[in-house]
Design a protein around this nucleic acid. Structure first.
Lengths: 355, 355
DNA sequence: ATAGCATACTAAACCGATTTATTGGCTGTT
DNA sequence: AACAGCCAATAAATCGGTTTAGTATGCTAT
């Protein structure tokens, strides 16, 4: 790391612990704050200031290591270059991947962001967007969260699924996602399938299940009620899928394939199936959802419907910034649909003759 | 969600899109900003204001839905109630777990935080702390990042391992962690062990490897150079561990146990071993590190050295807030050590007779 | 009558920038 | 000489709060 060049007369005077303000910098230069500000921001008003003086100002700013106070600037400009991100939890998998996409785009564009996680508590889902707006965020991104009230700022929801005024929804093409998985399984000869639905609080749960039912109907597959389980509980551990699958097995109803709500629950399901003496994929084929990083490294590697989570994050960020730049009354997209992809790995195989 | 009670005369006047400022609220009440501010903040100076007036002020604030601008308040008070968190990447596993611990404590205490990820790029590691300080953070937490310059604000490093003035390090007891794993393996009869070291940029790499060597020496185990691999590459996918393990196998040197740098690489290693026809744990025992959520749901379930990552996050946050509250010249802890725990699962077993 | 004191507030400075309107000096033109 | 026009900057308002010092009023005690 380069240390500041010493030997200048300026350097000796710097009380290193002090922060230099515009005022002190201007005083040091014998100029007004206005002049210094104009030059440093390369504002149009700096046109009238001669090159020579500009250089002097910039040199001093560099040497005194002047850094404008962002709070003051934000207050005056009514521009904070900050956005708020609301997630259910900072977990492995889903939210982390979306966030990393969001971050990628935002920091590139000079924005910073606050993260808050509500852990599915309604009062927090209501309160955090308000707190964030108090902190002058210019926009909000809600991940897998059903936002309640309209915000004063642009809002982009990733997998929000609510038609709310002022909200842009970024959603997966769930019909296609369900079709991809179901066609894959039926082509392999599966007819008796079990399903794991998502938790009631997850905003994808309803639409995805609807899509699965539609796809099943289209393929002439009938869904048995006793082969439909639902994840329950706040945590995002495979444990939930494990428990649900045990009850599915306990129902006694035979099945040769299982379509889980997500990879995490699929991993738990495989564990349960294995404990019950079923081999994957010889006895039961398992399909996950999301394609989280460890899906590929399960044993057997998990066949799954890939959701482009990172891309959904960057898409959310870029859409939000575009909306922020646009005039408030401008039109904006209500929905942006992204496409899933079936990733065939080793957890699915041809259905065996019914035993 | 309760809508604001209508029917009040006030309500009708509210232009719902407008934000109410202290000024407009004061005008509305026919009082000075000072009075309103004092009452709303329950400041000591409000003592002289009669109860009756206080109620009036609070009522109006509620009805007009007044929310103080946090920027303005921060600027004046020189208190932002904001901290900055620097992580290598928002990945699954490590950083996400630490962050969730940090968030837990911070939000409870009324602090918000910015997250930035530097992806191991040196210029970003240098620049982000400065940018965060420009944004008036009151403190910094660096996760698995070797901070370069001292900051103007308190700084807590999780797994930082650098003695830097002004920095509190939160570190695992690596000596004990290594001993736990090595004793476990030697008790199972393993002598010929392979190792996967961390990437050069990870701040845990050096100390952990040193600890392993010390532990090995203490147990009379000799480490073969050709059985020591090192993760390479930025990504945090199991792929890295997979590649390293293939070269370890290719060396031809026999081994009955493998101690990986983390769970992610252990998962990749298992994949590689399996492809080479080695069964886990019959042929090779594998020990991971961290105990990420999916470790328990590997097949076989992964034996691993648990790092209390979430707790390290909350500990970092609480330590930081304590340092922020203390006078700047106060003493502060240089290092806080947390204890690992060996989680025995199914990926380790007794060593077979040497083939 | 008036000093002393509590009550109920308010005026104004302040935080650290940005930004608009203005100024004083100088040159060149009619 | 008067005026315009440019140059090189500056004064002052502003963002939206917090906070200190102060003031006007009424009441009590001497």
């Amino acid at each position: 790391m380069p240390r500041p060049k010493s030997g200048t007369t300026l350097h000796a005077r710097i009380p290193s612990g002090q922060t230099v303000s515009l005022k002190s910098l201007a005083e040091h230069l014998g100029l007004s704050q206005a002049a210094v500000s104009l030059v440093i921001n390369r504002a149009p008003g700096a046109k009238s200031i001669p090159h020579h003086t500009q250089e002097l100002i910039r040199k001093a700013a560099r040497e005194l290591n002047y850094r404008p106070n962002h709070l003051a600037r934000s207050l005056r400009q009514q521009r904070s270059y900050t956005i708020g991100v609301v997630v259910p939890e900072i977990s492995e998998g889903y939210a982390a991947l979306v966030m990393s996409g969001i971050e990628d785009h935002l920091l590139q564009e000079g924005y910073f962001y606050f993260v808050v996680s509500h852990r599915h508590r309604d009062e927090l889902i209501e309160e955090y967007p308000l707190l964030l707006q108090q902190r002058a965020v210019e926009g909000l991104i809600a991940v897998d969260t059903a936002v309640t009230g309209a915000a004063q700022v642009p809002l982009v929801a990733v997998s929000g699924h609510r038609e709310v005024a002022g909200v842009t929804n970024i959603v997966l093409d769930h019909a296609r996602a369900a079709a991809l998985a179901m066609e894959h399984l039926t082509k392999l000869g599966h007819r008796r399938m079990a399903f794991i639905k998502g938790q009631a609080f997850s905003s994808d749960t309803a639409i995805r299940w609807e899509s699965v039912r539609t796809a099943a109907q289209g393929l002439g597959v009938t869904i048995q009620d006793c082969l439909v389980g639902q994840l329950e509980g706040e945590s995002s551990s495979p444990e939930l899928g494990y428990q649900v699958t045990r009850t599915l097995i306990a129902s006694g109803e035979p099945f040769t394939a299982l379509f889980a709500f997500n990879d995490i629950s699929a991993i738990g399901a495989i564990q349960a199936l294995r404990e019950a003496g079923r081999q994957i994929p010889q006895d039961v084929s398992v399909v996950g959802f999301d394609d989280i990083q460890s899906a590929a490294f399960q044993n057997p590697a998990l066949t799954t419907v890939r959701q482009p989570l990172r891309e959904m994050g960057t898409l959310a960020a870029s859409t939000l910034l575009r909306r922020i730049a646009a005039p408030p009354e401008a039109d904006y997209p209500r929905e942006i649909v992204v496409q899933p992809e079936l990733i065939c790995r080793a957890s699915t195989g041809a259905a065996r003759d019914r035993s």
